[in-house]
Simulated scan of single mutants.
Amino acid sequence: MTSTLPPRGRGTASNPYNRFAPTRSVAEDDGWFQEVPLSRATEVRIETAKSIITRNQSPDLPFDRSINPYRGCEHGCIYCYARPSHAYWDMSPGLDFETKLIAKTNAAALLEQQLSKPGYVCAPINLGSNTDPYQPIEREHKLTRHTLEVLLRYRHPVTIVTKGSLVLRDLDLLSELAKQRLVAVMISLTTLDDELKRIMEPRAAAPAARLRAIRVLREAGVPVGVLCSPMIPLINDSELEQLLAEAKKAGAQSAAYMFLRLPREVAPLFEEWLSAHFPERAEHVLSLVRQSRGGELYDSRFGTRMSGEGLFADLLAQRFKLALKRLGLNRREGFNLDCSRFCPPGGQMALL
């Protein structure tokens, strides 16, 4: 790994080896080094997917199925728990994850096929469980929009998690889904500090833009909540109450949070990021993470992986609970989606 700052607009400067690769390359100085501005363009590869609905049995998640139209995420969030998945596509969880993206261009057509199968049982589908459905390349590819069009046509319930203000482009579809109790949106809000956002989530929407998205969605009748995730000790945890208060002011009805998760390659990438941007507190941050993860930087156990454990994690949970109650951010109106409306085009809805 390098210890340099990342290229402008990227979350990391490193590209750690793919853990499944049979060989590894090591950079050596041959004396011909020239100092040139760092840059890394985004590449988008096209994939014809074989399936589009991913199933899970995790007790930590409020849904059992999800759709991710893209692999990799241009937002470049340094803490992203999805980074290790890029190794499965023979790419690095580092810089490759945010610059070498894969678009499942047949996502909508494949979804339509799967929803039309006679044995399909309807339950809410989540968009954004692994990578953001409204990352910048969605402007051109519109895979999320096409997916929503299918879900609306089939009257299928959907939940969305995003930190992209591009979600407002699809307000026409979302408001129509909301009229039929078929959609709920969670906006991820991690900081109100533009500079921290710039280095932590370089290509995600600005905090003000996310708050505006909450406000506009709510005014259009779409159920909206706020997700303060991840909470990072000594980096953004002090903002928790203010984040919730600003989200409430913008119109959020509910809230949730998650403690920092550092699986596999994410841990060394995050350590490098800390050393580059917060060298004076890096060790203290990591110490608090270990105290909340049984002495390690990551704990994958169900039940604790989202919230952590120990004194610091317990204090964070208490702070969240008190703020939730004080602000009234525990309203669930509109979040119980209606599966009874599901009806493939040409089909007949149940009478009872």
Rank of each mutant, 00 (worst) to 15 (best):
E280S: 13
V285P: 09
R210V: 00
L262I: 12
G295S: 05
F270H: 10
T304D: 03
R264L: 15
P268H: 09
M306R: 12
R261L: 15
D237N: 10
L260W: 07
E239Q: 07
G310L: 02
S292P: 03
F278M: 12
L297P: 01
E265H: 06
E239W: 02
R290Y: 08
L234C: 08
V289C: 00
R293M: 01
R218V: 01
L311H: 01
G221S: 00
P263K: 08
Q253M: 15
L244N: 06
R210T: 06
R290D: 00
V222T: 02
G225Y: 05
A267R: 10
G294V: 11
S300L: 04
E296T: 09
V216T: 15
V224A: 10
E246H: 10
A255W: 13
I235Y: 09
P263F: 14
F259R: 11
W273Q: 13
V285N: 09
R261S: 14
A256H: 03
R305Q: 12
L262H: 11
G295M: 10
L274T: 11
E265V: 07
P233N: 05
L297T: 04
E309S: 15
R293L: 01
L262G: 13
L260K: 09
L297G: 06
S292T: 07
E296L: 03
R301G: 03
R264C: 07
P279V: 08
R264G: 07
G295L: 09
V216W: 13
R293A: 04
C228G: 00
I235P: 00
L288Q: 10
F259P: 12
K249P: 03
E246W: 08
G294W: 02
N236Y: 01
C228I: 10
S287P: 00
T304Q: 08
R212Y: 10
A220T: 04
S287M: 03
L227Q: 01
L274V: 12
M306N: 12
L297D: 01
G310S: 04
Q253P: 11
R293S: 06
I214C: 07
G294R: 08
R215A: 14
Q242R: 14
L286D: 02
Q291C: 11
G225R: 06
A256D: 07
A247G: 13
E241A: 14
V222D: 00
S300F: 02
G303V: 05
G225W: 01
S254V: 01
V285R: 06
P223I: 12
Q242F: 10
L244W: 03
I235A: 09
L240D: 07
L244F: 05
F312M: 05
C228F: 06
D237F: 07
F302H: 13
G251K: 14
F278C: 07
Q242Y: 03
V289Y: 02
I235F: 09
S275Y: 05
Q253R: 15
V266H: 11
E241S: 09
A255Q: 12
F259V: 14
P279I: 11
L240Y: 13
E280I: 09
S254W: 04
A313I: 01
R290V: 11
R293N: 10
A250D: 04
E283A: 07
S292I: 04
L274A: 08
G303C: 06
F278N: 02
A213D: 00
E271L: 09
E296N: 08
